[in-house]
Design a protein around this nucleic acid. Structure first.
Length: 572
RNA sequence: CGGGAUGUAGCUCAGCCUGGCUAGAGCGCUACGUUCGGGACGUAGAGGUCGCAGGUUCGAAUCCUGUCAUCCCGACCA
């Protein structure tokens, strides 16, 4: 492709709306343009990378035995009502009505395709002989993001590969899951994207039923907890801590807690400022409703409660913070003054509480707190649990080292669904005993446009993008330094034709611009290999070949140019 | 959805607080000339309903009210 014949509007200045490097670079390199918040046009350059990533995804899905199909983005709302996800998605689901003749039809724009594919399978699959089967598509998804962010990283419309496996047994599910997991590793490796597979929150199936693939990036919205010695990695919601139970014995003759006035100070922050005390000496008492029953959850003041862990500790199906009325009934005080001493419900205690020797807690009385509260003495408990988010420095659950926290971008997710959708949409098969069973499903997603954004976000230097070879919009940027010089252009055109004939994606910057200008743009758009043809080099019969990732160019005899480029490509 | 900020030329921004003649700069763009190996220079130009609507005022980019849009922080995220 010749630059003058395509459409690559680069920007010298950083657009005001872009905050993070990846967004700035995609805008500046002319890869994307914004239409509105959360919706972007992929320009010719950006779209080439999208297609390269899509192609890698497609090849690896095919290799893993998945079969491609293409489903409608436009879907009847009724399917989401049947699975209960109309309410679960809430405002995130685009749904609207439209007239057709004298009828009013109610549609959704697909946020993902479990419903559509399960409905399809329910109609077409009759017998165990037709299974297992894994289907996938690469399609635009729609989610009404409350807050689109970071350019193409978080949008209301995005390109996603979604795959669904259907089987008759847990073994078939595990086989499909493993195949997808391995395919994902290959995909991210081929894309040149650093990734960490992490254990993720997986709902009722538990265990290893869900993994997220995270690209480590400072601007990532997710937190990954990992151990650098044993490789344990999990997202922050899921991560276990290697802490153990500590139940202190009751102390005889310990002084009673002292009540202090804390007018209008209901938060840990307020009270710690008022009493000049470290939040780590507080016990935070959160009143939760677990399957309709109130529970007081005790967490150290400087920690974050984790609802998933609380739910599992209580073996409850549903856990949520209690409403004000419940809190007042249980504690006898307004919100903000709950404490474990004298609270009228069960208590659930985090591991770290046992180690607090003398704590500040709510007094279960308006505008008052207790100091000198001794766990095990002033309130009793028989067991402690892991109830909070993991933190940097916590002990690893698998080895003796400690955990660290890194930011990450979620680029893929594999999930053992089980029979949630097959049951609600009646997707069943007949087994060899002629018995009807729900099909066992898995779902597997990769955000294609998000992968592109993650690569740009993580692969760049001061000058611009530094594309990994496999996903670069073009592999080579060929720069004739002076397009008015006939000899330079003759040679450049020849090299261009030869590179093209060798099957190499080449972009020739044939614009009538000064060399410095073109070099800057070349660094910006960041193609992996730069070939420069200039009058000076021509006198010596050489071209300059430079990898974008290296600072020095090598002088190559003109006749060897193609070979050298091919060698660089082969070396990756 | 809660909090904060911004909206002036294609882009980046000044001007607004303290209202006043024809609304500015740099970059980009057009023409001509000089230049030509890391974002050149000169000359001459084009380009603006100051987001939109209403109000206050003799007079509004500037003050007030509303509204829309975008961005940031937080909540949410099958």
């Amino acid at each position: 492709m010749r630059w003058t014949q395509t459409f690559i509007p680069t920007l010298k200045e950083v657009p005001a709306e872009a905050e993070i490097p990846g967004h700035q670079l995609m805008l500046r390199s002319g890869m994307i343009r914004q239409l509105m918040a959360g919706a972007y046009t992929f320009m010719p350059l950006g779209y080439r990378s999208v297609r390269k990533v899509s192609q890698i995804v497609r090849e690896e899905m095919d290799r893993a035995g998945a079969i491609e199909l293409f489903m409608p983005a436009l879907q009847p709302i009724e399917l989401f009502e049947r699975t209960g996800r109309k309410d679960a998605f809430g405002n995130v689901l685009f749904n609207f009505e439209s007239r057709r003749g004298d009828r009013n039809l109610h549609f959704a724009l697909g946020p993902t395709h479990e419903e559509v594919i399960t409905d399809l399978i329910s109609r077409e699959i009759k017998t165990f002989r037709q299974l297992p089967l894994t289907l996938y598509q690469i399609q635009t998804k729609f989610r009404n993001e409350e807050r689109p962010r970071f350019g193409v990283l978080r949008t209301s419309e995005f390109l996603m590969k979604d795959a669904y496996s259907f089987g008759t047994s847990l073994e078939q599910l595990n086989e499909a899951y493993d195949a997808m997991y391995n395919a994902y590793c290959r995909i991210f490796e081929r894309c040149g994207l650093e990734y960490i597979p992490v254990e993720a929150e997986s709902g009722p199936i538990g265990g290893d039923a869900s993994h997220e693939f995270m690209a480590p990036a400072d601007n990532g919205e997710d937190f990954v907890v990992r151990c650098s010695s044993c490789g344990y990695a999990a997202n922050q919601e899921r991560a276990d801590t290697g802490r153990s139970a500590t139940v202190p014995p009751a102390q005889d003759g310990a002084a009673d807690p002292e009540k202090v006035d804390t007018p209008n100070a209901g938060s840990i922050e307020d009270v710690s400022a008022m009493l000049k005390a470290d939040p780590a000496t507080f016990i935070k008492t959160l009143i939760y409703m677990a399957d309709g029953k109130a529970v007081a959850v005790l967490i150290r003041g400087d920690h974050e409660a984790n609802e998933g862990k609380i739910r599992r500790a209580l073996d409850a199906a549903d856990v949520a913070l209690a409403d004000e009325a419940t809190i007042e009934r249980v504690t006898g005080a307004p919100v903000g003054f709950a404490g474990p001493v004298g609270v009228d419900c069960d208590i659930l205690v985090d591991h770290d509480i046992g180690a607090v020797s003398s704590a500040i807690t709510g007094a279960n009385e308006k505008d008052a707190h207790l100091t000198g509260v001794i766990p095990g003495t002033h309130f009793q408990f028989e067991q402690t649990h892991d109830l909070r988010n993991a933190d940097a420095g916590d002990k690893c659950p698998r080895c003796d080292d400690s955990l660290e926290i890194v930011h990450g971008i979620e680029v893929g997710h594999v999930f053992k669904l089980g029979t949630k959708y097959s049951e609600s949409l009646d997707a069943t098969y007949l087994d060899s005993d002629e018995k009807k069973n729900p099909i066992i499903m898995g779902c597997y997603g990769i955000g294609v446009t998000r992968v592109v954004a993650s690569i740009v976000e993580t692969c760049h230097d001061e000058g611009g993008i530094v594309w990994p070879m496999a996903v670069a919009p073009y592999t080579v940027e060929l720069i004739p330094l002076n397009v008015k010089d006939e000899e330079v252009m003759t040679v450049s055109n020849r090299v261009y034709d030869e590179l093209t004939a060798a099957g190499i994606d080449v972009l020739m910057d044939d614009r009538d611009q000064r060399p410095g200008f073109k070099f800057k743009d070349a660094d910006l758009i960041g193609l992996p290999i730069r070939v420069v043809i200039g009058g000076r080099g021509l006198k010596e019969g050489i071209a300059e070949v430079r990898r974008r990732s290296e600072s020095d160019a090598q002088k190559v005899p003109l006749v060897d140019t193609i070979r050298v480029v091919q060698e660089i490509i082969a070396a990756g």
